[in-house]
Design a protein around this nucleic acid. Structure first.
Lengths: 232, 232
DNA sequence: ACCTGAACACCGTTCAAGT
DNA sequence: ACCTGAACACCGTTCAAGT
């Protein structure tokens, strides 16, 4: 008789993660997770206190993934002397922070259901704290004061973790030209902007913008502003 | 016999809004709304197709409120000649946009449950579109190209509507000093920042920051960056 | 046309019972 | 210690029936 692999917290969390990737966050229910593990829903409660803990654990898995990829990116060159390393870090904090944030973003793009979950999740987990610590460390190495870093974290907001923070998803593009003409009466500026941006570049309506470009545009404005504030 | 006031879409939406203000978004269920109106839950479906429509309608109510307050703020001085008005608008777009966004924020602070709802809501309603149109109009009057305005809307993101976009709510402040000391091992930079910021200003931990200041700090960085991009 | 009651197909979670 | 089945207290929504 086959003995079944025992249920563990880790198996539950990975099943939940896979479920979220496959069906979105609304597909993640205690009953569905249990189904996937060939177990009853109530068995999950022997390894996790409630659904909140499951979702928190899944968020942690994502930040472990981020930490993995970030580690590859910001690894110091071992041949540098310590002094050189410190010098380099001071000079390159903006580039280093930019790279780290874009790496985090690339991971979140693989789990698009995650940002709303992270935002709504009040409790800051250890894994999130460790990510934040890395961000703060880069700015500190760049010579920014803790006071400025604190403001910077607020200014960056979700962007510090690579959030896309889009409003009004790709459905706007489905507004046909007739509907747009009617709209023009009430929202002339919005209609004019859409008309021109669509005309200039057929792949860049509000519904199908170049998200990567827009994210970097906004990020660079903030990073440049912080650099200027640091120089003051 | 008292004839009951007939149910209307408007009465349903206002009941839902009051419920959200009183108990938060999780208190808004079809059954609870119906209770408040002394009616059965299923009666609501004669005036609104589903819960999604209820939530969308409530978001609209909030943007009507924003439009009301914004109208008071940006009213032009009637004594100005048209030419002067245009000149003024071109010069003051940054201040005008700042004022409009801070007004929107003041409304959202009265409905703190609303931002997550607006973000998660895919469909852009007419009321939201009208607000966006106003924002675009201010920048257009300031001489910004539609292309730059388009990037600006993405860079601002939720901030264009006054979002607070905080991560990890005020619970971080409940971390006692003992817990913080343990944390210092794993997240030394975060711990050091918290320690210094708390020391400098007892009212400004990560848990209890001056939200208004931080919001304006981030907003100004973005507006300044946009101004510089416009001058290029 | 408008409102209702019962029912359906789901939730998260508790509890007593099994092994 | 670990898993289960039944049950509880909720959801949004459908449907047939009332007035």
């Amino acid at each position: 008789m086959q003995t079944r692999e025992p249920l563990t917290k880790d198996r539950v969390l990975h099943a939940a993660l896979a479920l979220a990737d496959a069906e979105g966050i609304e597909g993640v229910t205690m009953r569905r997770i249990a189904d996937e593990l060939d177990v009853e829903a109530m068995s999950l409660y022997h390894h996790l206190p409630n659904k909140e803990a499951v979702l928190g654990g899944v968020v942690d898995l994502i930040f472990i993934e981020v930490a993995h990829e970030v580690g590859d990116v910001v690894g110091a060159t071992p041949t540098d002397s310590v002094v050189e390393l410190v010098e380099t870090r001071r000079a390159n904090w903006k580039a280093a922070l930019r790279a780290r944030i874009l790496t985090a973003r690339s991971v979140l793009l693989r789990h698009k259901w995650a940002p709303p979950l992270i935002e709504s999740h009040v409790a800051i987990s250890m894994e999130i704290a460790k990510y934040m610590d890395g961000v703060i460390g880069i700015m500190r190495a760049g010579g920014l004061s803790f006071d400025l870093i604190h403001h910077a974290m607020h200014a960056l907001g979700g962007r510090a973790m690579g959030f896309v923070q889009e409003l009004g998803d790709s459905d706007t593009s489905s507004a046909d030209t007739e509907q747009l003409k009617q709209m023009a009466q009430l929202v002339p500026n919005l209609a004019a902007m859409l008309a021109e941006v669509v005309h200039d570049d057929p792949e860049s309506t509000l519904g199908w913008c170049d998200d990567q470009f827009e994210f970097e545009f906004g990020l660079d404005i903030i990073l440049d502003g912080l650099e200027r504030a640091a120089a003051r």
